[in-house]
């Protein structure tokens, strides 16, 4: 590790930068989740997120909790796979690192497929981004989260290709994998919050 990479605090500048980025992303997702929470109780027209009776008419809720629980489980397991990939990289175990990195990428893509299925189902049920407040805030929030997962998958694929090309661990590979892992786990904790507040909360 180069000496120039360390800040006056003794923390690697690149790691410090990643944590500052994640902190700023907290505010970003905080605003998106707030918007959803505000609009959730003030939806003017169907479809609705949860079962609702409006003027004596019953409307089925769109949110599919069992399906989303499965996708949440997939993302949680991808975090476990990621931390094991970091462990492999930090212990010079190339095979272990590659294996768990491929698992993380696969689980990330699987999560994105869940999201594509959910979006397509919602569109089929008549919920577009401009249909009502639910559609606008839901697609914006979960869509941005999906974009984060997509970017994470691209980062991990590029790191994996790097190790395949060299067929060894470079001097900074462990650090790069660890930093990418920070981003990946952050995407996971954002989903933990979204899953609870958006899918499980009755209000």
């Amino acid at each position: 590790m180069s000496e120039q990479a360390h800040s006056v605090t003794g923390i690697d500048s690149r790691k410090l930068l990643m944590w500052i980025f994640l902190a700023s992303d907290c505010l970003f997702f905080g605003a998106l989740i707030s918007t959803y929470m505000i609009f959730k109780g003030n939806i003017n027209n169907p479809p609705y997120p949860t079962d609702r009776i409006v003027n004596g008419e019953f409307f089925h809720g769109l949110l599919n909790i069992p399906l989303t629980s499965a996708s949440t489980f997939v993302l949680l397991m991808s975090s476990v796979a990621m931390v094991l990939a970091v462990y492999g990289a930090q212990n010079n175990n190339l095979k272990m690192m590659k294996g768990w990195l491929i698992s993380t990428i696969g689980l990330g893509i699987f999560f994105l497929l869940f999201q594509v299925y959910e979006f397509r189902h919602f569109l089929h049920e008549g919920l577009g981004i401009s249909t009502n407040q639910f559609g606008a805030s839901f697609y914006l929030m979960t869509g941005f989260h999906g974009v984060h997962v997509g970017i994470g998958v691209i980062i991990l694929i590029s790191l994996l290709f790097g190790t395949f090309r060299r067929n060894s661990l470079g001097p900074d590979t462990g650090f790069h994998i660890e930093t990418a892992g920070l981003y990946w786990h952050f995407v996971d904790i954002v989903w933990i919050v979204i899953f609870t507040l958006v899918y499980l909360m009755p209000y």
Binding site: T9, I11, W19, A23, C26, L27, G30, I33, S34
Partner: peptide, 20 residues
């Protein structure tokens, strides 16, 4: 990790929570 990283993240998280 270094305490500074915890402080940076906790500050932003609490701020986001306050906004919510």
């Amino acid at each position: 990790e270094h305490r500074l990283l915890s402080q940076i993240f906790t500050f932003a998280f609490v701020l986001a929570l306050c906004i919510l």
